[in-house]
């Protein structure tokens, strides 16, 4: 059962109503107001210095955004008590997302973090561009992330690395988020993910993570795990010092 009423995550139909069209996204930063229920609330209307947001006299009306007037300044983000407003800029090679953030620790500009989707699942890697904690924000920090362009409509939260990162390849410390991002960028096989992320190129040579990687690929692409993980193997099938093999029979 989709929809914010049943899952806390906006349904495709609800998203279609709030996401800007591709042409507008390509023109520069724009607010995305993910407010789909008629709750009595209107601070966003006053927050906009350009008059781009209208709620009207009936404050249970959904906010109407005039995307032509919206400059993507993000002043509305911290003013929304529901933390439901984001600003997305997909005009460049990578997209930026401004989002409200009320957790500790706060990231610093330059940090690499795991980008999360609307259900808290890792969607890829993000770079923190800016952390705004001005007093006027009343305790709601506004964080700007850089993410791959195709994640502009997907990323709505993030998780600092190190503390909670979920490692798939424990040899090379490749996180779940990095694997998912590689798949979303086109890697469809364990080998392709390996080339993109170095997952499976560590000491154990993928013996620990291969199954996990294949499961993520299956999940992301909708295939059956058996299709993704081919039953092939190459020697050596156990970890050996290379010299053991390099010596060859002739040296004996």
């Amino acid at each position: 059962m989709p929809g914010v009423k049943y899952s806390g995550r906006l349904s495709d139909a609800e998203l279609a109503a709030v996401l800007p069209p591709a042409e507008r996204l390509a023109q520069g930063p724009v607010a995305v107001i993910e407010c789909v229920q008629s709750i009595p609330c209107n601070p966003c209307e006053k927050a906009c210095p350009f008059g781009a947001i209208t709620v009207g006299d009936d404050i249970t009306a959904l906010p109407a955004l005039d995307r032509a007037k919206c400059k993507g300044c993000g002043l509305c983000i911290s003013r929304c008590p529901g933390l439901a407003i984001f600003v997305v800029d997909a005009s460049g090679d990578e997209a930026t997302i401004m989002l409200p953030y009320e957790y500790l620790p706060l990231p610093a500009a330059g940090d690499v973090v795991d980008a999360l989707d609307r259900s808290g699942k890792p969607a890829g890697t993000a770079r923190v561009l800016k952390v705004n904690t001005a007093a006027g924000l009343e305790g709601t920090a506004v964080v700007t992330l850089a993410v791959p362009r195709k994640l502009a409509d997907i990323v709505r939260n993030f998780r600092p690395r190190g503390r909670d990162a979920i490692y798939i390849c424990r040899c090379n410390e490749v996180s779940e988020a990095e694997i998912r991002q590689a798949v979303r960028e086109g890697a469809r096989t364990v080998a392709a993910v390996k080339l993109a992320t170095r997952a499976g190129m560590g000491l154990c040579q993928g013996r620990t993570c291969r199954r996990l990687v294949s499961r993520i690929i299956a999940e992301e692409t909708g295939q059956h795990p058996a299709e993704v993980l081919p039953a092939t193997a190459r020697p050596p099938v156990r970890t050996l010092p290379l010299g053991t093999l390099a010596g060859g029979e002739d040296d004996e």
Binding site: G8, E34, S119
Partner: peptide, 23 residues
């Protein structure tokens, strides 16, 4: 119940932090 009782925006905040909501 089969649906979330409170505001969707409150639900969305904990969902995107990875908390499952099991109706």
């Amino acid at each position: 119940a089969s649906a979330i009782g409170g505001y969707g925006v409150h639900a969305a905040k904990i969902r995107r932090a990875g908390v499952p909501i099991l109706v």
